[in-house]
């Protein structure tokens, strides 16, 4: 299973629509990084509206994607985290502290703009 990555000008847009098993999550991590490299992307929005569960492994993969992309010079914003997912993450003690987030894709793009200007 592969998660499609769309390109919009300098940005990459990704909407995660599949159940994230471990292999898919790791493949996704790799695909995002190579796409940033290929396209010279400056920003990435990862939309999680359809994701019903984030456990510690998936949280780590997402946090790592953000850090790795930062190292490469691209900013990542996570959007659309659902209330049950946010509550569960906090219960678990997982804060994703330095990760920029926004309510939806549109605000995610605004947030990216800000991050890149600031």
């Amino acid at each position: 299973m592969r998660i499609p990555i769309l390109k919009l000008r300098d940005y990459l847009l990704i909407s995660v629509q599949v159940e994230l098993d471990d292999k898919t999550a790791l493949q996704f991590q790799e695909d995002v990084l190579s796409k940033i490299h290929e396209e010279g992307s400056r920003g990435v929005v990862i939309d999680l509206t359809s994701v019903e569960m984030i456990d510690s492994f998936i949280a780590k993969v997402l946090g790592d994607v953000v850090d790795m992309s930062n190292l490469m010079g691209a900013k990542v914003v996570l959007t659309g985290i659902q209330p049950p997912v946010a509550i569960t993450l906090i219960d678990m003690g997982i804060m994703l502290e330095d990760v920029p987030t926004a309510l939806d894709l549109e605000q995610g793009l605004d947030r990216l703009q800000l991050e890149l200007e600031g």
């Binding site: 569960m53 984030i54 510690s56 209330p83 049950p84 569960t88 678990m92």
Partner: peptide, 17 residues
Amino acid sequence: GSVDQARITTAISELAR
């Protein structure tokens, strides 16, 4: 409800992994 469904599903995922 949906919050407890997410909690239960997440707990299972942790133990299974």
